[in-house]
Design a protein around this nucleic acid. Structure first.
Length: 800
RNA sequence: GCCAUGGUGGCGGAACGGUAUACGCGUUGGUCUCAAAAACCAAUGAGAGCAAUCUCUUGAGGGUUCAAAUCCCUCCCAUGGUACCA
C-alpha cells in the first residue's frame, strides 16, 4: 500500500515554490496557451464539475509541457456576480469577506488535487487592479458608441430587484418564467439600461468562426443563435393617411399573395392608424399582451390571435388594398415590428387567415399541392412576374423597390443588444457620471472602487444599492453637480477579457503588454462547459473582436480551439444539485483514494465530451493500478529486457496520439494494459519503468514524481522534476519485431488467424498459409477468383 | 416541428471499412483466513453441444462492398438546444 497522503504533502506546495509550472514570457520553445474556464467562488467549495474540467485540461497541459512546449496554464476567480452576492445576503456576511474565504478554500483544494496552474498569474475579477481595466475597456465601448443608455423591454425579477438578460431567464415545469439564478418569477418591463451593441458585430462573429478550429457543432450553435436572415423591408401606404408601414419579409417573391398586414401590439404607429371604432378593442388587446412573455406569445402550438385596426394599407407592388391587424406573435424586437401576411405560403399566416376569414391567394407553384406551401417554385398570380422562379423574382422585386423608394434589401439578425447593467451591489461600478444638464461623462480616475458599504441588499424601489450611498453618488465636476451611475456591470464583464490579463497580470500601466499579447495570443485550447456556447464564449469573442478593431489586441479571434466538456451527474443520473441532494464532494474521495486516483478515475469514465453519473468504480480501479505501480518499483534492475522494451514502446506509441487528441479514457486503458503485462514479472528494467513513469506523469503527477525522484536518487528541484522531463519517444524498429495475428477470410468468412511477422507482403503471407492444414483444405483444388490483402490487417480470398 | 448529438454485453465504454465486445466495473469459482474484508488467480455476449466446434449478436429494416457497429437510404427511440424570426 502506498501512502498517497504523505506523497501529496511532500510535493503539492513544492511544485509551486520551485516554479515547475511557470510560464515564461518569450521563450525559444513553441508556446501553448491552455485555458480552463475559471470558477465562481460563491461560497460553495470545489465540486465534481471543477474536478472534471480541470483534470482534463491539467492532463493535457502536462502532456504538452513534457512535449517541449512553453505552456501557459493559468487560473483565477470570477468573483463578482449574483451567486456570491446571494450567498452573502443569505449568511449576512459581506460579499468581500465570503468571496475571499471561498477563494482561499478553493485554491487550497486545487493545490491539493495537484493541478499545475501557474499561480504567479492568478487573477481575481474583484481585485481593483483587475477591474480597473474592466472599467477602462468598458469605456472603450462607450467612446466608440457601442455602449448606449436606452429604454428596453426587459425581464424584471421582483425578487432579485434586477433586470435579467433573455438568456438568464428559464422556464419552470409549469411554463412560468423564472430567473436562472434563484428560480424567482420574472415579468416583462420597460426600463432604461446600459446595453452593448453586440448586433453591430453579428456578421463578424459569424465570419470569425472560420478562423477557428471550434468543433462544427459549436460553430453551428453560435451561427444559429446569431440568426442571420436576408430579406427585404417594404413600405406599405396606409389608406387615407400619410403614414407608411415598414414590414420585413424574407419572401418578397410572395408579395402578390399578401392579403393582410400584422403589426406588433407595441408598434408606436398604432396610435395614428387605429380607427375610432376599433380603438377599445385594440387597447384591450394591447393590455392583455403586456402580461405575456415573449415565449408565451411565440409558442407554436398556441392559437393565433389578433385584432383588426380598422385601417387598410396598399401593397406597393400589386396596388391591392389589405386590412391591417395587430397580433401578439409579431414582436417589436425583431425586424420592423410588422409583417405582411401571405397565408398560402406560411403556416402561421395560413392559420391567422383561416381564423379571421382573410383571403388566401397561391402565388408559388411547385410539386407540393397542399397549402400552406413554404417551398420555392415558379410564380403564379403575380402579373408580369408570372413564371419567374422565386430566386429570379426576388432579384427583380428588390431592384424595383429600391429604384422606386418602396423599400430596400435588408439583413436581419436575431442577436440582440446585450443588456449590460444590473441593479446590484456586487459588480464592477460603471465608470460614468450623469451631469445635471443630462450629459454623461467618464470618470476621470480608474479604478472607480466599489465602496465598502454595509447595506448592499437590493432595495424595494428598483434602484441600485449604490444609490443609497449619497456620499458616493453625488459629485461635483467643474462646478456642475452630477450623479454617479449606480448600476453595476454583470457577471459576464470580468470573464469577457480575463484571458488577456493572465498574459500580463501585474501590469500597472496597461491591461496587458502588446509584445506579450503578441507572443501568447490566441488561446490555443479552451476547456469549458456547453452552457456557455452562446453566452460567455460569444460575449468574449465580441469583446476581443472589438479590441482588435481598435488595435488593442493582436488577433481578432481569442480562441483557436474549444472543447465543451461533459458533466459529472449525480449517482442517480440527474444533474448534481443541492436541491436534489445528489451532490458528491470530491475531497472525501481524494482522502480515501488519493488525488492521483480521483483525477485518473474521472478521466477514465469515458470520452471527455460526454456526461456520466458519478460512481467510485473507476477511481477504485485506478487506485489499484497505482498501488501495483508502487509495488513494481521495488523490482527494478539495471538490465534490458526485450519483452518489456516492446511493451513500453507500444505504450508510448499508442498514448502519444491519445493524449494529443484528449482521448483520456483509452490512454488510461493503455496504461492498465502495460501494467497487466509486466506486473507478474520478477524483475523490471529500470529504463523501461522510468519511461513508464513519464507516460503516467500527466495523469498521476504525485506518484510519478515520488517514484522518479526515488529511482533517480535525486532531491526534488525544478530541473529534476518529472514534470519538466521530456515525454518519451518510441522506437519503431522494436515494434517491428513483434509478431502479429493476421485474420484469414475465405469467401468473406473468418477461417483462422495466423501468427506472422509484421509487414510481410502478400506473397509471403500466401506462402505461410499453405503451411496450415486447415486453410489449405479450403483452397486446394479450387479456383481462386480474387485475393484481397491489407498489410498487417487481413487476407481475404474468394474461391469457386 | 426544426437543428445537433447519440443508440454496442448485466453496467461505463473500446473498435469508427478489415478478428465486435479492448480496458474497467459487476458476477461466479478458486487461493489466503477460524471466518470475513482486502489482496491475488481464473472464468464471464447469447444459444446449441460431452467435446472439437457450430449458430446468432452493435435500436429496426433495406442497400453498397470480398468485408459494415463504421458508408448510403427509410424508420423507431433517447438526450441536448431552439422557436410563430416574417
Amino acid at each position: 500500500m502506498y501512502n498517497f497522503l504523505e506523497i501529496e504533502a511532500k510535493y503539492k506546495n513544492k511544485w509551486h515554490e520551485k516554479k515547475v509550472y511557470e510560464a515564461v514570457d518569450f521563450s525559444d520553445k513553441p508556446k501553448k496557451y491552455i485555458l480552463a474556464e475559471f470558477p465562481y467562488p460563491s461560497g460553495a467549495a470545489l465540486h465534481m464539475g471543477h474536478m472534471m474540467r480541470f483534470s482534463i485540461a491539467d492532463i493535457y497541459s502536462r502532456f504538452k509541457r513534457m512535449s517541449g512546449y512553453n505552456v501557459l496554464f493559468p487560473m483565477g476567480w470570477d468573483a463578482f456576480g449574483l451567486p456570491a452576492e446571494n450567498f452573502a445576503i443569505k449568511t449576512g456576511i459581506h460579499p468581500s469577506e465570503t468571496t475571499k474565504k471561498s477563494i482561499d478554500t478553493m485554491k487550497n483544494s486545487l493545490i491539493h488535487m495537484g493541478f499545475g496552474f501557474d499561480w504567479e498569474r492568478e487573477i481575481s475579477t474583484i481585485d481593483p487592479e483587475y477591474y480597473k481595466w474592466t472599467q477602462w475597456l468598458f469605456l472603450k465601448f462607450y467612446e466608440n458608441n457601442l455602449a448606449e443608455y436606452k429604454e428596453m423591454p426587459l425581464w424584471w425579477c421582483e425578487e432579485l430587484k434586477t433586470v435579467l438578460a433573455e438568456e438568464e431567464v428559464l422556464e419552470d415545469s409549469n411554463g412560468n418564467k423564472i430567473s436562472e439564478r434563484g428560480g424567482h418569477p420574472v415579468v416583462r418591463k420597460n426600463l432604461k439600461q446600459w446595453v452593448l451593441k453586440m448586433p453591430t458585430y453579428a456578421q463578424k462573429l459569424i465570419d470569425g468562426l472560420s478562423n477557428t478550429e471550434f468543433p462544427e457543432h459549436i460553430k453551428n450553435a453560435q451561427i444559429n443563435w446569431i440568426g442571420r436572415s436576408e430579406g427585404s423591408e417594404i413600405l406599405f401606404d396606409v389608406k387615407d393617411s400619410h403614414e407608411k408601414i415598414k414590414i420585413f419579409t424574407t419572401r418578397i417573391d410572395t408579395i402578390f399573395g399578401a392579403s393582410f398586414l400584422v403589426l406588433s401590439p407595441e408598434n408606436p404607429l398604432l396610435e395614428k392608424i387605429v380607427s375610432p371604432e376599433q380603438k377599445d378593442e385594440v387597447t384591450k388587446y394591447q393590455e392583455k399582451v403586456k402580461s405575456k412573455s415573449e415565449l408565451e406569445r411565440t409558442e407554436l402550438q398556441k392559437e393565433k390571435s389578433g385584432v383588426f385596426t380598422g385601417s387598410f394599407a396598399t401593397n406597393p407592388i400589386s396596388r391591392k388594398e389589405v386590412p391591417i391587424y395587430i397580433g401578439d406573435f409579431v414582436l417589436m424586437s425583431y425586424g420592423t415590428g410588422a409583417i405582411m401576411g401571405v397565408p398560402a405560403h406560411d403556416e402561421r399566416d395560413f392559420e391567422f387567415a383561416n381564423k379571421y376569414n382573410l383571403e388566401i391567394v397561391q402565388v408559388i407553384e411547385n410539386e407540393i399541392k397542399d397549402l400552406p406551401n413554404k417551398e420555392y417554385g415558379k410564380l403564379i398570380n403575380s402579373n408580369e412576374y408570372n413564371s419567374l422562379t422565386s430566386e429570379e423574382a426576388r432579384v427583380k422585386l428588390n431592384e424595383l423597390i429600391e429604384k422606386n423608394n418602396l423599400g430596400n434589401k435588408k439583413v436581419n439578425f436575431k442577436l440582440r443588444d446585450w443588456v449590460f447593467s444590473r441593479q446590484r451591489y456586487w459588480g464592477e461600478p460603471i465608470p460614468l457620471i450623469h451631469l445635471e444638464d443630462g450629459k454623461i461623462i467618464e470618470e476621470s480616475k480608474l479604478p472607480l472602487v466599489l465602496p465598502d458599504i454595509p447595506n448592499y441588499e437590493p432595495s424595494s424601489d428598483a434602484s441600485a444599492p449604490l444609490a443609497k450611498n449619497s456620499e458616493w453618488v453625488n459629485v461635483e465636476i467643474n462646478g456642475q453637480k452630477g450623479k454617479r451611475e449606480t448600476n453595476t456591470m454583470p457577471n459576464w464583464a470580468g470573464s469577457s477579457w480575463y484571458f488577456l490579463r493572465y498574459i500580463d497580470p501585474k501590469n500597472k500601466n496597461e491591461f496587458a503588454n502588446q509584445d506579450k499579447l503578441k507572443y501568447w495570443m490566441p488561446v490555443d485550447n479552451y476547456f469549458g462547459g456547453s452552457e456557455h456556447t452562446t453566452m460567455h464564449l460569444l460575449y468574449s469573442r465580441f469583446w476581443n473582436q472589438f479590441f482588435y478593431d481598435i488595435n488593442l489586441v493582436p488577433v481578432s479571434e481569442p480562441y483557436h480551439w474549444r472543447l465543451n466538456g461533459g458533466l459529472v451527474l449525480g449517482p442517480d443520473g440527474k444533474k448534481m444539485s443541492k436541491s436534489l441532494g445528489n451532490t458528491v464532494d470530491p475531497l472525501p474521495v481524494a482522502e480515501k483514494y488519493g488525488a492521483d486516483a480521483i483525477r485518473m478515475g474521472i478521466a477514465f469514465m469515458g470520452p471527455v465530451e460526454d456526461s456520466f453519473p458519478w460512481n467510485e468504480n473507476g477511481v477504485r480501479a485506478c487506485y489499484k493500478v497505482l498501488n501495483t505501480v508502487w509495488n513494481l518499483s521495488e523490482k527494478l534492475i539495471d538490465e534490458k529486457i526485450i519483452s518489456q522494451e516492446v511493451y513500453i514502446n507500444n505504450l508510448i506509441k499508442n498514448i502519444s496520439s491519445m493524449y494529443e487528441n484528449i482521448r483520456l479514457n483509452t490512454t488510461i486503458s493503455e496504461i492498465m494494459i502495460f501494467v497487466n503485462n509486466i506486473k507478474n514479472e520478477d524483475k523490471i528494467s529500470k529504463e523501461v519503468f522510468v519511461k513508464f513513469l513519464k507516460c503516467l506523469a500527466p495523469l498521476a503527477p504525485f506518484i510519478a514524481e515520488e517514484l522518479y525522484q526515488k529511482i533517480n536518487d535525486t532531491t526534488f528541484e525544478k530541473n529534476t522534476s518529472i514534470h519538466i522531463s521530456e515525454f518519451p519517444k518510441y522506437d519503431e524498429s522494436i515494434l517491428n519485431e513483434i509478431k502479429i495475428n493476421l485474420p484469414i477470410q475465405i469467401n468473406g468468412k473468418l477461417i483462422a488467424t495466423i501468427q506472422i511477422d509484421k509487414n510481410l507482403n502478400q506473397e509471403e503471407v500466401l506462402r505461410e498459409i499453405y503451411k496450415i492444414e486447415k486453410i489449405k483444405n479450403f483452397i486446394i483444388n479450387k479456383e481462386i477468383i480474387k485475393t484481397i490483402f491489407v498489410s498487417n490487417k487481413i487476407l481475404s480470398i474468394l474461391v469457386k
